[in-house]
Design a protein around this nucleic acid. Sequence first.
DNA 1: CTGTTAGCGCATTCAT
DNA 2: ATGAATGCGCTAACAG
Lengths: 348, 348
Amino acid sequence: MGTLPFLYLAPMKKHQTTIVDIAKELNISKSTVSRALTGHPSVHKSTREKVLALANELEYQRNMFSIGLIKKRSHTIGIIVPEFSRSFFPQVIIGAQERAKEAGYNLIISQSDESYITEVSNASVMLAHQVDGLLVSITKETNNFEHFKIFQRKGIPIVFFNRVCDEMIVPKVIVEDYEGAYEAVEHLIKKGRKRIAHLSGPESLSISKRRTNGYKDALRKHHLPVDDALIINYDLSISKVPIYINYFLNLPERPDAIFCINDPTAIEAMRVIKQRGLKIPEDISVIGFSNDFVSSLIEPSLTTVEQPIKEIGRTAAQLLLEQMDRDVADWKAATVVLKTKLIVRESS
Amino acid sequence: MGTLPFLYLAPMKKHQTTIVDIAKELNISKSTVSRALTGHPSVHKSTREKVLALANELEYQRNMFSIGLIKKRSHTIGIIVPEFSRSFFPQVIIGAQERAKEAGYNLIISQSDESYITEVSNASVMLAHQVDGLLVSITKETNNFEHFKIFQRKGIPIVFFNRVCDEMIVPKVIVEDYEGAYEAVEHLIKKGRKRIAHLSGPESLSISKRRTNGYKDALRKHHLPVDDALIINYDLSISKVPIYINYFLNLPERPDAIFCINDPTAIEAMRVIKQRGLKIPEDISVIGFSNDFVSSLIEPSLTTVEQPIKEIGRTAAQLLLEQMDRDVADWKAATVVLKTKLIVRESS
DNA sequence: CTGTTAGCGCATTCAT
DNA sequence: ATGAATGCGCTAACAG
């Protein structure tokens, strides 16, 4: 300090404290500092204490970049979801984040806004950020999976959840879509409903197909006709729900119940039905799928198939962590199916 | 290939393609490859094309770590929110992500679950991940800000939004809390309400104070008494809302309106009120704040103060980007106040 | 236009 | 128990 021959002006540029700074200050080598900081056993106790104290004082922060460069691990998991505006995916993310954090990993989250293009871009961002693994629920548009297959080729594990990719052999987390739908429709039948319509999601999503199959099989089981005029696939844009509900309501033989692909759809359906002056459930029953928190708040409250939302996230993260621990050659591809449960409320 | 003197077994270890691989294959130096890849002007067209083609073929991916090490930038922005389960914060995040992406930045998101401890931990994670800037909305518990001040000391800009830190001089994004509350209460008064209760948030949050002040001033302006028995601060745990609503309803002189700190609170309040057999708005009016999408779905639909939710996120990200472009010495600390607007629905 | 050299901050051999 | 040397993958300053 006082020995400096010239007036020394501190540079404006912000300087991150490094192990070299600590080493200099303590007159030891940076190797020793590094060892002390990483908890290497062969460091003298007093040395370690001095290092730790100074590191603390200088608010030293290990540099991710250099460590990543050496260890080739970012300790980061990426998660890509199709949308973010309804409560489902945020809840899933909470679960995933919980599990990831327990394991010392962080999450980089991005949402694709139901756009395939955005999804591809998001995937590329995840790659650029060197995520150690990726969790994905695809958009309603996605039917090319090249942007995900590249992860596999690079040895970065992927786990799909909720909206999964059928053609990739990787771990997946889904719920009992078939069973849940079956149970819901059977419940309607037992309530005496005979013309049950079904507003489903895009045919491209396997989740739609599974729920529709549950719907059909419940009808068949109870010897009710499966009428294609009562089944509609739509693209999940809530604004289009009125079109299809009005179509149902205008049929010569009006349905006496509607089973919807998810809760937001069911809630919008109820709005349209009430607007038309029909009574729920007297004139027509409505059932959703998911048990979003809103379902219990609306009036009448919505009968729905509950799925363990946070658990989907936790499980997906867990499968991913397991996969990350394995050598590429040992990758497993089990599909985990979580339980669903019918929640009967006023709308049925 | 054919010239290899020995049988060569490819290593199991996954190998990221690097610029050296490309350089070797093309018999040029890695510098040239680097230049070609980064779009440096002084590279022969044919060379660049060859490099790009090979890079593409090998699915080359720039290594974030090494670039970060050199450029000292992660191109990542952190965002810490108190919770994630209601629609407000996810919506804010969408806005922030939009703006960040436009500027070539990614978001690392974490939620503190309304816990100060978790928030501190999240902040430390953001530091470890070398975020270039941080967006924060604090938990209801937070009243020590050391974990955020460290960012300032390290030259990493912070922007607060919604729930801001009063003691730090940094950019902030809030809405017209005072004006919105004032307008809401004035609306109730004009509807003939004379005993207006107020269920507010924690006194520690300035957002609560501002809304409460708007409430009080509207009463005063219209010569109504400000009765402390009609003002309650609570900790935002929705499960506790029934306690306070029942308290209000059991008062000798029952209030004829309740102005709630936010929509989730108002919605739960309405549930309790209806359960008690009272009519909304005939017996008692309810107003919320935020215009979450649920507000229009419930019955009766909720009168509320709309705030530009996504815009809060966009603006916060924008202020942060501006701050990141500035030298530490030039940091600005403007507070941006976004407009609110009363949305009158059936509950008032 | 291209090659050579020197680090960025750190963990990790290999010495001592 | 500690220091010196090496290199992770890349950019940039410096030669030609």
